[in-house]
C-alpha cells in the first residue's frame, strides 16, 4: 500500500467494494479505533482516567443496556426523534416550497430570495431566547429551531439546482412543444433533484445539531434532557451513551438519504461507475 493515498471519488470506491485488496484495507481500518478503545479501558481500570471525567467503555456499554431495559433510553430517543421529524418536515417543506417560488419565476425570486439571504445571515442558535419568549419552553421552540435550521440548506440547494438546470434542455423542451407545467415536471424538477438531495443531507446534519442545542437549553424529556440530567449527577457514562445515540441517529438518517440518492439518481450511475 502506498504511503500517500489520494482521495478518490466516493462513488467510484463504492462501485468496486469487492476484491481482496479492498477487504484487507477495510479490516485494517478497524485496528486503530479498537486500539484506542483498549487503551481507554486500561486507563479507566488503572484509575488514570477518573470516572467523573470519562467513564470506562465497559461501564458505558452496561449503562446503555440498563437504560434500554429500564425504558429510559427508548423513551428519550422517541421524544427526540419526534422533534427532529416534525421539525424536519415543517422546515423541509417550507424550504422547498420557497425554493420553487424563487426558482421558477423572476418575480418569485425578487420576493423571496432577499429575505431568505438576510435571514440566513442570522445565527439561528442566537434566536433561542426569542423563541422561548414567543413559544415558551414546550415542544414548539425546539421543533421550530430544527425547522428553521433545516429550511435554509434545502432552500439554497434547491434554488441553485433549479437555476442550474441546463438551458439546452429547456430549448429541447421548447422544440418538443412542452407546456410550462411539463417543462417544470419533466426537466426542471428532475434536473434540480441532485442538488436538492445534497441539501437534504446537509439539512439532516444540521437538524440533529439544532435539536441537540435546543434540548440543552430547556427540556424535561428527550436525549438532551437525559444528558443534562446526567451531568448533575456526574454520570459520564450516561452522557457518553446519549452522545453515541445522537451520532448513531445522525448516521442512520444519512444512510437513508444515501439510499434515496442511489434510487433517485440511478440515471447517473452509468457514467459514474
Amino acid at each position: 500500500m502506498s504511503v500517500v493515498e489520494l482521495a478518490r471519488p466516493i462513488e467510484k470506491a463504492r462501485a468496486t467494494p469487492k476484491g481482496p485488496r479492498r477487504r484487507v484495507t477495510a479490516w485494517h481500518r478497524w485496528l486503530s479505533p479498537l486500539a484506542l478503545l483498549v487503551v481507554w479501558q486500561i486507563a479507566s481500570a488503572t484509575g488514570l482516567l477518573p470516572e467523573r471525567l470519562l467513564a470506562a467503555p465497559a461501564d458505558i456499554a452496561s449503562t446503555a443496556v440498563e437504560l434500554t431495559q429500564a425504558g429510559t433510553l427508548p423513551t428519550a430517543i422517541g421524544v427526540s426523534l419526534q422533534r427532529v421529524l416534525i421539525g424536519f418536515l415543517v422546515g423541509g417543506t417550507a424550504g422547498i416550497v420557497l425554493a420553487l417560488v424563487a426558482g421558477l419565476s423572476r418575480a418569485g425570486e425578487n420576493a423571496v430570495d432577499p429575505i431568505m439571504q438576510a435571514l440566513r445571515a442570522l445565527p439561528f442558535f442566537g434566536l433561542i431566547p426569542l423563541f422561548i419568549l414567543w413559544f415558551g419552553i414546550g415542544e414548539e421552540p425546539k421543533i421550530l429551531l430544527v425547522a428553521l435550521a433545516v429550511s435554509f440548506p434545502l432552500y439554497l440547494n434547491t434554488f441553485s439546482g433549479i437555476r442550474g438546470v441546463d438551458g439546452k434542455l429547456a430549448e429541447v423542451a421548447t422544440t418538443l412543444k412542452l407546456s410550462r407545467g411539463q417543462l417544470i415536471r419533466h426537466i426542471v424538477l428532475p434536473g434540480a433533484l441532485p442538488q436538492t438531495l445534497v441539501g437534504l443531507r446537509q439539512a439532516l446534519g444540521v437538524a440533529w445539531l439544532a435539536l441537540i442545542v435546543a434540548e440543552q437549553v430547556n427540556a424535561t424529556t428527550g436525549l438532551g434532557y437525559m444528558i443534562n440530567d446526567a451531568r448533575e449527577f456526574l454520570r459520564t457514562d450516561v452522557i457518553v451513551v446519549g452522545l453515541l445515540v445522537y451520532s448513531a441517529l445522525g448516521l442512520a438518517t444519512d444512510a437513508i438519504v444515501r439510499l434515496l440518492e442511489r434510487r433517485a439518481l440511478a440515471w447517473r450511475r452509468g457514467f459514474l461507475a
Binding site: L169, E171, H186, G191, L193, W267, R268
Partner: peptide, 10 residues
C-alpha cells in the same frame, strides 16, 4: 441538435 440533448433522467 449538434449534441443529441437527450434528457438524461429519462
Amino acid at each position: 441538435f449538434q449534441e443529441p440533448r437527450l434528457v438524461p433522467w429519462k
